[in-house]
Protein backbone atom coordinates (compact mmCIF):
# COMPACT_ATOMS: atom_id res chain seq x y z
CA UNK A 1 0.00 0.00 0.00
CA UNK A 2 1.41 3.38 -0.93
CA UNK A 3 1.70 6.04 1.74
CA UNK A 4 -1.28 8.42 1.41
CA UNK A 5 0.81 11.18 3.02
CA UNK A 6 3.40 10.93 0.25
CA UNK A 7 0.96 11.59 -2.58
CA UNK A 8 -0.01 15.25 -3.18
CA UNK A 9 -3.50 14.14 -4.23
CA UNK A 10 -4.28 12.42 -0.93
CA UNK A 11 -1.98 14.00 1.68
CA UNK A 12 -4.61 16.48 2.86
CA UNK A 13 -7.10 13.65 3.46
CA UNK A 14 -4.39 11.72 5.28
CA UNK A 15 -3.73 14.48 7.79
CA UNK A 16 -7.50 15.13 7.99
CA UNK A 17 -8.03 11.53 9.08
CA UNK A 18 -5.33 11.77 11.76
CA UNK A 19 -6.73 15.06 13.04
CA UNK A 20 -10.22 13.57 13.30
CA UNK A 21 -8.74 10.52 15.06
CA UNK A 22 -7.07 12.60 17.76
CA UNK A 23 -10.11 14.86 18.20
CA UNK A 24 -13.07 12.48 18.37
CA UNK A 25 -12.09 10.88 21.67
CA UNK A 26 -11.97 14.29 23.32
CA UNK A 27 -15.42 15.10 21.96
CA UNK A 28 -16.70 11.72 23.12
CA UNK A 29 -15.54 12.40 26.70
CA UNK A 30 -17.19 15.84 26.75
CA UNK A 31 -20.48 14.58 25.27
CA UNK A 32 -20.39 11.69 27.71
CA UNK A 33 -20.07 14.14 30.62
CA UNK A 34 -22.94 16.20 29.20
CA UNK A 35 -25.16 13.11 28.82
CA UNK A 36 -24.48 12.07 32.40
CA UNK A 37 -25.99 15.38 33.48
CA UNK A 38 -29.29 14.55 31.78
CA UNK A 39 -31.95 13.65 34.33
CA UNK A 40 -32.52 9.87 34.07
CA UNK A 41 -36.22 10.29 34.94
CA UNK A 42 -36.73 12.12 31.63
CA UNK A 43 -35.39 9.12 29.72
CA UNK A 44 -37.46 6.74 31.83
CA UNK A 45 -40.60 8.82 31.21
CA UNK A 46 -39.97 8.70 27.45
CA UNK A 47 -39.47 4.93 27.56
CA UNK A 48 -42.64 4.44 29.63
CA UNK A 49 -44.55 6.54 27.11
CA UNK A 50 -43.42 4.10 24.42
CA UNK A 51 -40.85 6.23 22.64
CA UNK A 52 -38.52 4.27 20.39
CA UNK A 53 -34.77 4.15 20.97
CA UNK A 54 -34.06 6.77 18.32
CA UNK A 55 -37.01 8.95 19.36
CA UNK A 56 -35.68 9.00 22.92
CA UNK A 57 -32.29 10.01 21.61
CA UNK A 58 -33.61 12.58 19.15
CA UNK A 59 -36.29 14.25 21.30
CA UNK A 60 -34.97 13.86 24.86
CA UNK A 61 -31.21 13.32 24.99
CA UNK A 62 -30.18 15.47 22.03
CA UNK A 63 -32.08 18.64 23.04
CA UNK A 64 -30.68 18.31 26.56
CA UNK A 65 -27.06 18.30 25.38
CA UNK A 66 -27.60 20.74 22.50
CA UNK A 67 -25.77 23.61 24.29
CA UNK A 68 -22.70 21.40 24.64
CA UNK A 69 -22.94 20.22 21.02
CA UNK A 70 -23.22 23.81 19.76
CA UNK A 71 -20.25 24.92 21.84
CA UNK A 72 -18.05 22.00 20.84
CA UNK A 73 -19.00 22.66 17.21
CA UNK A 74 -17.74 26.21 17.66
CA UNK A 75 -14.50 25.06 19.30
CA UNK A 76 -13.99 22.42 16.59
CA UNK A 77 -14.28 25.15 13.94
CA UNK A 78 -11.92 27.50 15.76
CA UNK A 79 -9.36 24.81 16.56
CA UNK A 80 -9.55 23.43 13.02
CA UNK A 81 -8.41 26.78 11.65
CA UNK A 82 -5.61 26.69 14.21
CA UNK A 83 -4.54 23.11 13.41
CA UNK A 84 -0.78 22.92 13.23
CA UNK A 85 0.98 20.23 15.23
CA UNK A 86 -0.36 17.10 13.52
CA UNK A 87 0.15 18.47 10.04
CA UNK A 88 3.63 19.74 10.85
CA UNK A 89 4.66 16.40 12.35
CA UNK A 90 3.17 14.29 9.56
CA UNK A 91 3.92 16.19 6.35
CA UNK A 92 5.27 19.68 7.18
CA UNK A 93 2.65 20.93 4.73
CA UNK A 94 4.02 18.81 1.90
CA UNK A 95 4.49 17.16 -0.47
CA UNK A 96 4.76 20.48 -2.30
CA UNK A 97 2.07 22.65 -0.77
CA UNK A 98 -0.62 19.95 -0.93
CA UNK A 99 -1.34 19.79 2.80
CA UNK A 100 -0.34 23.35 3.70
CA UNK A 101 -2.75 25.07 6.11
CA UNK A 102 -2.69 28.54 7.62
CA UNK A 103 -0.99 27.24 10.78
CA UNK A 104 1.96 25.57 9.04
CA UNK A 105 2.29 28.45 6.58
CA UNK A 106 2.44 30.98 9.43
CA UNK A 107 4.99 28.86 11.32
CA UNK A 108 7.26 28.45 8.28
CA UNK A 109 7.01 32.15 7.44
CA UNK A 110 7.90 33.15 10.98
CA UNK A 111 10.63 30.66 11.86
CA UNK A 112 12.14 29.62 8.52
CA UNK A 113 11.86 32.83 6.50
CA UNK A 114 12.05 34.94 9.66
CA UNK A 115 9.20 37.13 8.36
CA UNK A 116 7.38 37.47 11.68
CA UNK A 117 5.19 40.37 10.57
CA UNK A 118 3.90 38.45 7.60
CA UNK A 119 3.27 35.39 9.79
CA UNK A 120 1.32 37.50 12.26
CA UNK A 121 -0.85 38.65 9.37
CA UNK A 122 -1.55 35.00 8.49
CA UNK A 123 -2.46 34.34 12.13
CA UNK A 124 -4.79 37.31 12.13
CA UNK A 125 -6.59 35.82 9.11
CA UNK A 126 -6.97 32.58 11.12
CA UNK A 127 -8.41 34.57 14.01
CA UNK A 128 -10.81 36.40 11.71
CA UNK A 129 -12.13 33.11 10.33
CA UNK A 130 -12.66 31.92 13.90
CA UNK A 131 -14.35 35.20 14.78
CA UNK A 132 -16.97 34.60 12.07
CA UNK A 133 -17.89 31.33 13.83
CA UNK A 134 -17.93 33.12 17.21
CA UNK A 135 -20.24 35.83 15.84
CA UNK A 136 -22.71 33.19 14.63
CA UNK A 137 -22.51 31.38 17.98
CA UNK A 138 -23.10 34.55 20.03
CA UNK A 139 -25.98 35.51 17.76
CA UNK A 140 -27.64 32.18 18.51
CA UNK A 141 -27.04 32.80 22.24
CA UNK A 142 -28.55 36.27 22.02
CA UNK A 143 -31.65 35.13 20.15
CA UNK A 144 -32.42 32.19 22.41
CA UNK A 145 -34.31 33.26 25.49
CA UNK A 146 -32.59 31.37 28.25
CA UNK A 147 -30.75 28.26 27.16
CA UNK A 148 -28.48 27.08 24.29
Amino acid sequence: MSNPLGDPATSLYGVLLVDIWHWWGYLAVIYFAAMRQVDITLIEAAVVDGASYFATFRFVLLPMILPTILFMLLMSIIWSFRVFDWIYILTEGGPGFSSEVLGTLAYKTAFQQMAVGKASAYSLVMSMLGLVAIAVYLRIQYKSEKTL
Partner: peptide, 21 residues
Protein backbone atom coordinates in the same frame (compact mmCIF):
# COMPACT_ATOMS: atom_id res chain seq x y z
CA UNK B 1 -22.13 39.42 28.88
CA UNK B 2 -22.04 39.31 25.08
CA UNK B 3 -18.94 41.52 24.98
CA UNK B 4 -17.28 39.44 27.72
CA UNK B 5 -18.10 36.23 25.84
CA UNK B 6 -16.67 37.70 22.64
CA UNK B 7 -13.51 38.76 24.47
CA UNK B 8 -12.92 35.32 25.97
CA UNK B 9 -13.81 33.37 22.83
CA UNK B 10 -11.66 35.60 20.62
CA UNK B 11 -8.58 34.69 22.66
CA UNK B 12 -9.05 31.01 21.74
CA UNK B 13 -8.60 31.80 18.04
CA UNK B 14 -4.98 32.96 18.45
CA UNK B 15 -2.48 30.22 17.54
CA UNK B 16 -0.13 29.41 20.41
CA UNK B 17 3.07 29.36 18.35
CA UNK B 18 2.49 33.01 17.42
CA UNK B 19 2.61 34.33 20.98
CA UNK B 20 5.20 32.02 22.50
CA UNK B 21 8.13 34.24 21.53
Amino acid sequence: WMAISLYFLATTTVPVQMFIF
